[in-house]
Amino acid sequence: MSEDCDHADPTIKTEAAAQAEARSAEAAAIRRRWITLGEALAVVAVVISALTLWNSWSERADTEATNRAEAQRASARAQTLVLTATRSSERMLALKPVSADQSVQAQSISFPKALGLAPVQTTGEPRVEAGWFADALKKARDNAGMPDDSRGDERLPVAITTQFLADGRTHEDIAIYDVGYTIAGRLLGGHTVALRGVSLVSHAKSGGAQATLDARWAKLLPSR
């Protein structure tokens, strides 16, 4: 009996050792899986954090880019001058910017060379007066063989150089405008020029404004 027990003990011990080893291996595998899962979760957390940071930076960058673009557009609008006119009388047009954010400081109004007129300067009260050019215009119309009385509105091109304030800064604009007018004969008073309004033709460069003005004059009032 004793010999049988002695013979069985090694087998039992071997099986027990094998089971213990298997349990140990399984426990080690479980620990490795947990370590691997933990590492994966850590990586995921880092990735999420990085994506969140990038998204926040991207949104901020987009917002800043949008704000810069809007500021540039606003600045461009502020520097682009368009004048409009209201009739103070038939002999004078009061000029003002279309934009309320602009304020005219001074202007120089040039006429076609064919009229033989010097530029007119204004300060603080932008305007066009018929008396500046009426006699020269009537003479030019007569030389061109145009009718004494106009039919509808006629156009006199002028170059207007304007110094104006916008966004607290001084800017300069040079543009060609058509001054609308009518001319009619009176029995005792001769012909009278009545002003109607102004219309923007184009913006111009400083060196080429007079040539552009003269070309438009030749188009509107060709010589006979």
Rank of each mutant, 00 (worst) to 15 (best):
Q105V: 10
V47N: 06
A134T: 04
R91E: 09
R186K: 13
A61G: 09
L213F: 03
T11Y: 07
P119I: 03
T123C: 01
P222S: 10
A65L: 14
G197L: 02
A94K: 09
P10L: 05
D178F: 01
A144I: 03
A40K: 07
W54S: 15
T170H: 03
S75N: 07
Q102F: 05
E154M: 15
A215T: 04
G145C: 06
A69Y: 09
Q19E: 11
L195G: 10
H171F: 12
T36K: 01
S89K: 00
A211T: 15
P126I: 02
R33F: 06
R151P: 03
E64A: 10
T170L: 15
D178P: 08
S110E: 12
T122C: 04
Y177F: 10
L213V: 06
S108I: 02
R68W: 04
A65K: 15
P147I: 04
L41M: 14
S24Q: 01
A209E: 14
A215K: 11
T66R: 14
A94E: 07
G197F: 03
C5H: 12
A130Q: 09
N143Y: 11
G189N: 15
G131I: 02
A18Y: 04
G124L: 00
R87H: 04
W217P: 07
Y177P: 05
F133Q: 03
D167Q: 11
E70W: 03
L51N: 11
G116F: 06
G116A: 05
A42P: 01
V44H: 05
N67H: 09
A17P: 00
L221E: 10
R141V: 06
K113T: 14
T123E: 08
Q19F: 06
D142W: 00
Q19V: 05
Y181Q: 10
N67Y: 11
W132F: 08
G152P: 10
V193I: 14
E21N: 10
T36I: 07
K139L: 14
R224A: 12
A20G: 01
A94H: 03
S103F: 14
T162R: 02
D4H: 08
L200Y: 09
T182P: 07
P10F: 00
L188T: 12
W34P: 00
E172T: 15
A25C: 02
F164Y: 11
T212N: 15
R68C: 06
S206P: 04
R91S: 15
T182H: 11
F111N: 00
G131L: 01
L137A: 12
E39I: 15
S223R: 10
K96Q: 13
T52F: 05
G207W: 04
I35E: 14
A16L: 14
L200M: 05
L200C: 00
G207E: 08
V193N: 06
D135I: 06
G38L: 12
A61S: 09
Q72I: 13
P119E: 04
R169D: 09
L200V: 06
